[in-house]
């Protein structure tokens, strides 16, 4: 009797679980779709011709969208709603053609972005990994206070430090790219993220290795680094995304319009030529998505990570 009741209970539980599981999947999928919506729109809109973009998005009434205007109240101006769509009326690659072959100056800007971001990311990794390890292993009375200062500096908005950086750059006559790259390399974000990862690291392993006679460098390279890979991947993603997007410092430090990174040109093109803006935005997103895919393995390692590798 009791066995039967238990079996029924278990069956009910399984049914509820599968029903709950299905709901779970649906809700997560809906959220994921919602998250990806703007990006998908970006890609599909880049395949539209310029005329279609204007007729779809502008508030003005043109020949092409006059049939879709609404007359809200008698006497008010007629009104054209934005017609966003996943499928353009006419799919054309003209915007990409215009971007790559007719306006080569944007490719130059893209290259500027790359030579601005890559040294920063590489430098961050080189500097932050040993520093985080040192922070963790150091025995010093004021260690936490120093870390506190790091955190405070990390939270500063950019305008605060812009004028002093400019002064420094002028005093030492740094070339404009270096004036942006050097502060980026020494940003405290890296140490903060990596140290948090290291906090969960059992000290016994490290001390055992030390007793066995390994130097700090060896410990770092052989034991700690493989386990920190996910954090480093996250750090690379965050730093790259930050500096791929840079606007404030670039406007001030870089004097020549042709040396600017592409992030600044995006907002200008958005107002002037909306069609090419979509193509440019898609092109601009590609490197970072590629980097993301490359780091994906490490990050999903993090996602399924349970214990410490020895």
């Amino acid at each position: 009797m009791i066995k039967r009741k238990n079996m029924i209970k278990r069956k009910n539980m399984i049914k509820r679980k599968t029903w709950q599981g299905g709901l779970l999947y649906i809700s997560i999928m809906a959220l994921a779709l919602l998250t990806l919506l703007p990006i998908v729109l970006l890609v599909t809109n880049s395949l539209m011709s310029g005329r279609e973009i204007v007729s779809r998005y502008s508030m003005d009434i043109t020949v092409f969208n006059v049939l879709n205007t609404e007359y809200i109240k008698a006497g008010d101006a007629p009104f054209h709603f934005v017609e966003m769509t996943f499928l353009p009326d006419y799919i054309t690659f003209y915007q990409y053609f215009k971007l790559f072959f007719k306006s080569p100056e944007y490719l130059r800007l893209f290259w500027n972005s790359v030579i601005l971001c890559v040294p920063i990311v590489v430098g961050q990794c080189i500097i932050s990994v040993p520093a985080a390890y040192a922070f963790e292993r150091l025995q010093w009375k004021y260690k936490e206070h120093l870390f506190f200062i790091y955190i405070i500096v990390m939270l500063m908005p950019t305008q605060v430090l812009l004028v002093p950086h400019y002064l420094l750059a002028e005093m030492v006559t740094l070339p404009p790219y270096l004036a942006i790259i050097l502060p980026g390399i020494f940003s405290p974000l890296g140490i903060f993220l990596l140290r948090q990862q290291l906090k969960g690291f059992p000290h016994e392993c490290l001390e055992a290795a030390q007793v066995d006679g390994a130097a700090h460098g060896n410990i770092l390279y052989h034991i700690v680094l493989p386990n920190m890979k996910p954090s480093v991947a996250v750090l690379v993603m965050i730093t790259f995304a930050d500096y791929w997007n840079i606007v404030d410092q670039a406007i001030v430090f870089i004097k020549n319009v042709f040396d600017e990174p592409m992030s600044i040109a995006l907002s200008k093109v958005m107002q002037n030529d909306t069609g090419m803006f979509f193509a440019m935005a898609c092109f601009y997103i590609v490197p970072i998505v590629v980097l993301f895919m490359a780091c994906r393995d490490y990050i999903s390692q993090e996602l399924s990570f349970v214990g410490v590798k020895n």
């Binding site: 490719l107 130059r108 893209f110 290259w111 790359v114 042709f258 490197p287 590629v290 490359a294």
Partner: peptide, 28 residues
């Protein structure tokens, strides 16, 4: 899969740099 993606990245950067370098002349 990874190698393929790295390959794409390298291609894009090279293309960007080549066209960018030739733009040096256009700048002048």
């Amino acid at each position: 899969m990874n190698k393929f993606l790295k390959f794409i990245l390298v291609i894009i950067i090279t293309m960007g740099s080549l066209t960018g370098c030739s733009f040096e002349a256009k700048n002048d």
